[in-house]
């Protein structure tokens, strides 16, 4: 009998790192085979949304009455939508990459039991899910940007003042989305996972300052402050602040702080739920 040929006694850190990389490689490998469904999933919602609200309606005769652009006093609606739809794509990738597969792995197939037997601490298995999901979110955001730029009849006004801020927002938003997916996937019973679209995804999208800037909510104070518990708000506002700064937006420091807080909170809740599910 020989030991594992590469290293008979690797240090604990090396062992964890290899297992973590192995899990990530496996997930990327499987995703590579499902690139087309991945692309369709990412594109369909923003594409249709942009097509109807920023192309079809502005082209309608007398469409002005229905045109949300009019309500936003001169700012093109496409400029409002660009960061918002990127935020939705980021958030939705977290749900689709973590919450939905987890429901299957916890439920029918119990595949998760095998992943948990990897030689690394169980919370790291959960963190790998968050990282993998965040990678998908970044790609999704990058796919949505050109759509939101080229589909509308009037292109949005974009301008990046600080690249480090943009990168920080995208990375934090993507990780937060993964952590949200983990929390949902471990909290909701596998049989009820279908309900999360109606109960969680749609409300947090519509109340997430995706289709309107937070700064314009002044007329409805209850909503202006109520939505602050919604992590999507900071994703949309963060992208607004970094990509379309001509629109009013939240202060950048507040956005980064809240994204970090939500990332910490959702990661903690997600790992706790994960441990409860897999360790009896």
């Amino acid at each position: 009998m020989t030991q594992n040929p590469s290293a008979p006694h690797p240090s604990a850190f090396t062992q964890y790192l290899r297992a973590f990389t192995g899990l990530l490689q496996r997930d990327l490998y499987v995703l590579r085979r499902e690139l087309f469904p991945f692309a369709v999933r990412v594109c369909m919602n923003p594409l249709l949304f942009l097509f109807v609200f920023t192309y079809v309606i502005p082209h309608m005769s007398g469409g002005a009455a229905m045109n949300p652009t009019a309500a936003l006093a001169g700012t093109s609606f496409s400029t409002v939508l660009l960061p918002g739809l990127m935020a939705v794509a980021i958030m939705f990738s977290g749900i689709a990459a973590v919450a939905l597969p987890l429901a299957q792995e916890f439920g029918v197939t119990r595949e998760i039991d095998d992943r948990v037997m990897c030689p690394l601490p169980v919370p790291a298995v959960a963190i790998e899910k968050i990282c993998f999901s965040a990678m998908q979110s970044v790609v999704a955001a990058a796919i949505v940007y050109p759509l939101a730029y080229y589909v509308p009849a009037t292109p949005p006004t974009t301008h990046v003042t600080s690249w480090p801020f943009l990168i920080a927002v995208v990375v934090l938003a993507s990780l937060t989305a993964g952590a949200l997916g983990l929390t949902i996937g471990t909290t909701v019973k596998p049989q009820q996972i279908g309900l999360i679209f109606g109960v969680v995804v749609i409300p947090i999208t519509f109340l997430g300052c995706v289709y309107y800037p937070w700064a314009k909510l002044g007329a409805i104070p209850a909503m202006k402050y109520g939505v602050l518990i919604n992590p999507i708000v900071y994703m949309s506002e963060g992208l607004r602040a970094s990509l379309t700064p001509s629109l009013d937006h939240m202060p950048p420091s507040m956005i980064l702080l809240m994204l970090c807080l939500f990332l910490a909170l959702l990661t903690w809740l997600g790992i706790r739920g994960f441990l409860r599910r897999v360790i009896g």
């Binding site: 594992n4 040929p5 290293a7 290899r18 490998y29 085979r33 039991d113 095998d114």
Partner: peptide, 30 residues
């Protein structure tokens, strides 16, 4: 080997064993 089938449904038989080895620190060739 648990009571129920926990094989990775998204991977082939070869890939199931291959990735298992990777998790445990084998190089790709090993």
């Amino acid at each position: 080997v648990p009571q129920y089938n926990t094989l990775d449904r998204a991977c082939t038989v070869f890939e199931n064993i291959h990735f298992h080895c990777r998790y445990f620190g084998f190089s790709s060739a090993e």
